[in-house]
Design a protein around this nucleic acid. Structure first.
Lengths: 205, 205
DNA sequence: GCTTGCGTTAACAAAAATGTTAAACAAAAA
DNA sequence: TTTTTGTTTAACATTTTTGTTAACGCAAGC
């Protein structure tokens, strides 16, 4: 049917994202993706040339979307702490929707460092620049211990992402059920804010 | 030569660890491992039955060694903050020696959650128990904002591990050379302590 | 109606990786 | 010396996965 034609490429991508980002099936084969999308495997090659090239596209899009989200939040005209509160909230919520997105990004960037560099070269946008001034002000006013924007951001992103990245092992070590871990992740929004600012997080509107 | 016989199994393991933990070659084939060890590929099956079984052993040993290190540090009879300072120092140093160990552990535990649960069941040792009392005291004395041992430990481990886990992408985003990132990681020892305790880290003896 | 072009499929081809086996070998035991 | 045992190897077999191709179908334009 011609009506669905234009959609096929998207369907394949969607299903692939579902398998990789939501279900965490890193070793997913082209066959499994094709099955999930309900199409013939050859179509994956027709649209994406090779499995490798497809992964490359998925990685690019995933990173690009993340970059855009981060940039949009950190570019908002808001007080520093509110900005960070929103950032924490957004990242954790996002992570819970796509539990394996970070795993995918990390394993792909580890596996292909050249591609990572190429992407970053194409796409210059240091998130550290987006908070540099406000952070400096915060520090100057004595509201925060001195820290570079790079360290501050790495702290923030580490605190947000790691618990999702290492979920299987953290959950098991701490003996939590799926539900308990879910709660734990939600709690972390407060915990992270508190860890960074040593004050209660204001409720996010 | 009989002299080397007993060593073969170890040599294979060593080389495999080198490829997985140090070089981060996650997709390493049995052939590559055999080549690195300078032996026939069939020996890998002779000693480890299958590639999968070998990975299982490597994962077990890696987790076990980590667990032992953590336990040893956190069990020391020392003031809380000094304990944590040592922990940070040890973990970061260890991470820099085996840059891809965490990636390996995480990707394997994601890939095989049953095995992870089995390991943890065999090996009950909640690291949170090792700091529970001292942490509570610290909080009670008003030296630290209230936080559960689980969140405290996840914070700590996230701050220590994430920068190594996500190195390829963080390094590129922040436009650092290998050397600069090395420095950055060393700085983090101070930064992490400061982030958690809001005071300078005492020099570790 | 014919043909042209794109999407689609099944069937085939090739590659890459793992797993198995029988025989060679070398050292220790008999 | 012969036997025995555990180690090692080459060669083979199998499995898994990716990549290619030729043909089919269907809608649009001529």
């Amino acid at each position: 049917m011609k009506i669905e034609e234009a959609q096929t490429e998207q369907v394949i991508k969607e299903k692939a994202k579902e398998l990789f980002f939501k279900k965490g099936l890193i070793k997913t084969t082209t066959q499994e993706i094709a099955d999930a999308a309900g199409v013939n495997r050859a179509l994956i090659h027709y649209y994406f040339r090779s499995r490798e090239h497809m992964l490359s596209i998925l990685l690019d899009e995933a990173m690009e979307e993340k970059r855009a989200r981060v940039k949009s939040i950190l570019s908002f005209d808001l007080p520093f702490r509110e900005k960070i509160a929103r950032y924490i909230d957004a990242i954790i919520t996002y992570n819970m929707t796509y539990p394996y997105l970070e795993n995918f990004i990390i394993s792909e960037t580890v596996r292909n460092k050249d591609r990572t560099e190429a992407y970053c070269a194409r796409n210059q946008s240091r998130s550290s620049d987006l908070i540099r001034d406000q952070l400096a002000e915060e520090i100057q006013q004595g509201r925060l211990a001195p820290i570079t924007p790079e360290h501050f951001l790495v702290n923030l992103i580490a605190l947000c992402n790691y618990p999702m990245l290492a979920k299987p092992i953290l959950r098991t070590i701490h003996g939590m059920t799926e539900e308990a871990y879910h709660e734990f992740l939600l709690e972390r929004k407060q915990v992270i804010y508190m860890t960074i600012f040593k004050e209660e997080m204001p409720s996010v509107s």
